[in-house]
């Protein structure tokens, strides 16, 4: 009798222990975990009204390098910097040219005549259409970080993110000036560049536009660096820019509309001169969270080219 009592107690205890282990295991399964009482749903900011998406991805060009840094477009050719290599890709997506650069390029601009300006951290070089160096600037202080270059007439503009300034060079890459975006107007601040994201571009009307990422602004400057006008939209939503450094990249459609690329919630959108969003080229769902904002360029036919640093490819978007 006593023996049976001991066996029963042991069996009941074993069953209880097994039940507790199974219950604990099941409760830890993803679908059975209790809801997060502190849940913060940012998905509403990632979702985009389908009516706004008026572009579709039509082509992808896989790169043969894993370290693309910059892209430019001119006269039917895509110029790509990856590591210390320059590649030129033709309209049939084949590589027309490969050249080893003196050092790693961080940004590119291509002139209509075929020559190229490359920013290389703390200095610039001009390359001819064969990729040969024809001019080189003096080096800026080592901590300088040239993140964007643009060509306007005989001037070359370089955005130095660390120095929070735009440098002006001539075609021989001699520095002829610089400006910091101070307008003298109390409600317009100079360049605020919290991170290594400071971009500039020239539109088809030969207007120089520069981001002021700290205040989510796109600003238009004269050739000598005087502020002419600006648009500023700060918002968590798609109607503006948020975070420290947006828009990270921008360029222009042939009719002057802006194409902007954002980090954080990665998306590419088209905005008009008043700052309103006209359409979305690429919603966040097309990019992996936590990756870099794609560099953008616009082809002759008005297609948007996005350099996806995560997938090492150029993605082409056409209007629907």
């Amino acid at each position: 009798m006593r023996k049976w009592a001991v066996i029963s107690i042991v069996l009941i205890s074993a069953a209880a222990i097994i039940a507790v282990i199974i219950a604990e295991h099941r409760s830890a399964l993803p679908g059975r975990r209790p809801a997060n009482p502190f849940a913060y749903d940012v998905e509403e900011f990632r979702s985009v009204d389908q009516e706004l998406i008026r572009w579709r991805e039509t082509h992808q060009v896989q790169l043969d390098r894993e370290d693309p840094r910059a892209m430019a477009y001119s006269d039917g050719k895509i110029y790509l910097a990856a590591g210390n290599e320059l590649q030129v890709i033709g309209s049939d997506w084949s590589r027309i040219l490969r050249r080893t650069l003196p050092s790693e390029a961080t940004c590119l601009a291509a002139a209509r005549e075929g020559w190229i300006v490359a920013g290389m951290g703390n200095h610039l070089v001009i390359l001819d259409s064969d990729g040969e160096t024809i001019a080189e600037s003096e080096a800026l202080p080592e901590e300088s970080s040239i993140t964007s270059v643009a060509i306007l007439g005989d001037n070359i503009y370089a955005a130095d993110a660390t120095g929070r300034r735009v440098l002006i060079y001539n075609r021989e890459l001699e520095q002829t000036g610089e400006f910091r975006g101070d307008s003298g107007v109390s409600d317009v601040h100079g360049f605020i560049v919290p991170g290594a994201h400071f971009s500039l571009a020239v539109n088809s009307e030969d207007e120089l536009w520069i981001t002021n990422p700290g205040i989510h602004s796109l600003q238009n400057y004269t050739a000598s660096g005087r502020l002419r006008s600006y648009i500023q939209r700060t918002s968590f939503g798609i109607d503006g820019f948020s975070g420290c450094c947006n828009p990270v990249h921008f360029t222009f459609l042939p009719d002057g509309r802006f194409v902007t690329s954002e980090k954080g919630i990665i998306r590419i959108k088209v905005i008009i001169g008043t700052g309103e969003v006209e359409s979305v080229v690429a919603p966040p769902e097309l990019f992996r969270e936590g990756t870099n904002a794609p560099a953008v360029a616009v082809g002759d036919n008005g297609n948007v080219l996005a350099l996806d640093f995560d997938r090492n490819m150029i993605r082409i978007f056409e209007p629907i």
Binding site: P194, G214, C244
Partner: peptide, 14 residues
């Protein structure tokens, strides 16, 4: 790493 933003996504509620 901080951008010292006015519109801080970690501080302000949507």
């Amino acid at each position: 790493l901080c951008g010292y933003c006015d519109l801080c996504g970690g501080y302000l509620i949507p």
